[in-house]
């Protein structure tokens, strides 16, 4: 049994919060540069240039990429041979969020009660923390500062079990089309198909931790991802929805076995900066 001190988790999370909100991931920047070469709309190209310039300024001047530094979504893969000492793991993660958002001059966007007074907690806590028990003696931490504009465009629907992949394609296209400029295209789109309602949405969110271009290992799913990317880009929504050929940088699909009566489909969208950062303890 390997021991990990709770304070180490706090420090790691704080560092991830600052890095994820300031440094555009390399794979995302590469994809945006690629899109600049293929974008058909001159205004779209100008917007892409501003997005790239923004990344450079953020990095060099330590300004957050976006003022919406998000809900802190944390995905913990906890090795079953790890023992946390000196505190409760969830408290340690939230302490890290508080520290990162405070020391990093990040915006605190969390209100304590969703329909009541909506008073800001002042610390950006609590985060939304997902845990998964995995083999081994390490902790893998994925950090995603998730913006409100794109998160608000999430959708879920139960389809008839025989509706098939066509239903998935239609639903994803419809979601992106209706979202317009709200989620800040060019987008990265996460899709969860199967399981139950909460499983589908969790898969959609989790898929957004992948690197751009990383296809599903399931050949059938991988083909669906490519089909979806083409279909979404044919919509013409374009950068910031001003019209153009780059509506999405990538589409990720995760699937899970499901009930004989069911075909759950969930869509969770990321903005063009697709902010994520990982570490392993």
């Amino acid at each position: 049994m390997r021991e990990i001190e709770a304070g180490v988790i706090t420090e790691a999370v704080a560092k991830l919060a600052v890095e994820a909100t300031h440094f555009l991931p390399e794979d995302v920047e590469g994809a945006i540069r690629g899109a600049r070469e293929t974008e058909q709309s001159p205004l779209g190209v100008q917007i892409i240039d501003e997005i790239l310039e923004n990344a450079e300024i953020a990095r060099e001047q330590m300004l957050p990429l976006c003022q919406d530094t998000g809900t802190a979504v944390v995905h913990l893969e906890l090795g079953q041979d790890v023992h946390i000492t000196g505190g409760f793991i969830m408290d340690a993660v939230n302490a890290g969020i508080e520290k990162g958002y405070g020391d990093g001059y990040l915006r605190k966007s969390i209100v304590a009660h969703p329909f009541g007074e909506r008073k800001n907690t002042g610390t950006n806590t609590p985060g939304v923390i997902h845990t998964e028990i995995v083999p081994g003696d390490k902790i893998h931490i994925g950090f995603m500062p998730k913006g409100g504009g794109c998160e608000n465009m999430s959708r879920y629907q139960n389809f008839l079990p025989g509706a098939g992949r066509e239903a998935v394609i239609k639903f994803v296209c419809e979601t992106v089309d209706q979202s317009g400029g709200n989620p800040c295209p060019p987008l990265v789109i996460g899709v969860g198909v199967g399981g139950t309602a909460e499983k589908a949405m969790t898969m959609a969110k989790h898929s957004l931790f992948r690197k751009i271009g990383q296809r599903s290992e399931d050949p059938e799913v991988s083909i669906l991802e490519k089909t979806l990317l083409d279909a979404v880009n044919a919509l013409g929504v374009g950068p910031q929805a001003v019209g153009g050929s780059t509506t999405a940088l990538d589409v990720f699909v995760e699937t899970y076995p499901t009930h004989i009566t069911a075909l759950p489909v969930a869509v969770n969208i990321q903005c063009h900066s697709a902010r994520t950062k990982h570490t392993v303890l």
Binding site: N54, A58, Q67, G181, C184
Partner: peptide
Amino acid sequence: IAVGGTGAL
């Protein structure tokens, strides 16, 4: 619109 997600710029 200003370009969303370019708060540093």
